[in-house]
Design a protein around this nucleic acid. Structure first.
Lengths: 215, 215
DNA sequence: GTCTATAGATTGATAGAC
DNA sequence: GTCTATCAATCTATAGAC
């Protein structure tokens, strides 16, 4: 039972720490962010992280859990609904069930945008701390996505499906991580990155890749 | 004019530092690797990095340059050759000209495998140090790849092409970064990761994605 | 070129007053 | 719960002997 804070407009310290952490971990990395930076950004005391979470690493885990548990719950409902439908789902529907919640959620609130970049980073990061925490939370939904795609694409061998899902998650994580922060843009191109057009662009690409015939 | 070392079988200190750096930066990250670890791994003195390279950051730049300059030279020759051919190249040929050197080179020597993972990481890493050094070296070849793909896919708008290339590079970097080190493997799948089959798998996927019709 | 020793700054974490 | 003060460890980088 949480106490109602005296000042309604200001999130309590614990939440401010989570907000600052997802912002800084996303832009400077986990190892690249010191607790001094972090607590300053959150307008909290240096000792606050250890008081509320126990350690820097436990703070990172809390950052992931706060957003990922409800997001994966939504993805899971979407995928289960497709599996229970009367007709076999198309591969595009399956991919959409997984992708759409991410990009829609990214545009809903500004903190979520940083979080999505943090996730994009966590997938590629070789650092054990970051990746292990993330993978533990993602494993069930990855396996569910794999199984649902297998039903949508029965002609594909399990091994081919595995690789293609691997490629697709790479394209997705790269997009989530870097969308709107391009390093290199060819002259004359002004890429739009709103959720709706980005979703349909990425689904066109991924669906065609998943359904490609094998050479 | 380099001196021939007294002991022929052992690379000199500078090269051992580069080898150790690409191995450790790939597995623990740039910020996650200390000069103490690094010089211990290279069996060199703690002061050796600063003597030979001037700073930790300059060592990172040297790690990239050693491998990336010849690799991009090869990619560039491949792409230019396609552009000068009599017929318009297919999108698969263009992608292959870029991808094949990477994966072939990865299997040639064991250090290169670590380097390829480091590159996969550099693309997604928000850390300025890592990314800026990398992007400076990659910008010319990215733009050449973009232009060559535009010739192979004239029906695609420049903006759509940009996004799809973005997705493709994401899939590639993810594959290079994680191939052989999967976190999650569904039961019954034993993915093979030799260069030849991986190349054809990834080209099937990327070519179909690039050529997909727009929804 | 390689080494020891160390400067100078920063880190995550904690003890204890309030 | 929040604060100050501080510990013990670690870091990059450098000075200077050999």
């Amino acid at each position: 039972m949480k106490q109602i804070p005296a000042n309604f407009s200001r999130p309590d310290t614990k939440e401010r720490l989570l907000d600052a952490a997802e912002r800084l971990f996303a832009s400077d990395g986990f190892q690249g962010t010191s607790l001094r930076q972090l607590t300053a950004e959150a307008k909290a005391n240096l000792a606050a992280v250890n008081y509320h979470f126990g350690s820097k690493e436990a703070l990172l885990a809390a950052v992931f859990e706060r957003r990922l548990l409800p997001l994966n719950e939504l993805r899971s409902r979407n995928l289960q609904q497709l599996r229970l439908g009367a007709e076999r789902p198309t591969s595009r529907q399956v991919l959409q069930a997984f992708v759409e919640p991410t990009l829609a959620f990214r545009d809903r609130d500004p903190g979520a945008e940083a979080f999505v970049r943090l996730v994009g980073r966590a997938i590629a990061d070789p650092d054990d701390t970051l990746r292990k925490i993330f993978m533990r939370l993602m494993e069930p939904i990855f396996l569910l996505l794999y199984e649902t795609l297998a039903e949508a694409l029965p002609q594909l061998s399990r091994s081919d499906l595995f690789w293609r899902l691997h490629f697709a998650l790479g394209a997705l994580s790269h997009t989530m991580c870097l969308a709107g922060r391009f390093q290199i843009v060819p002259p004359g191109v002004t890429p739009a990155a709103d959720a709706a057009s980005l979703t349909s662009q990425v689904l066109d690409f991924l669906t065609a890749g998943m359904e490609a015939s094998c050479s």
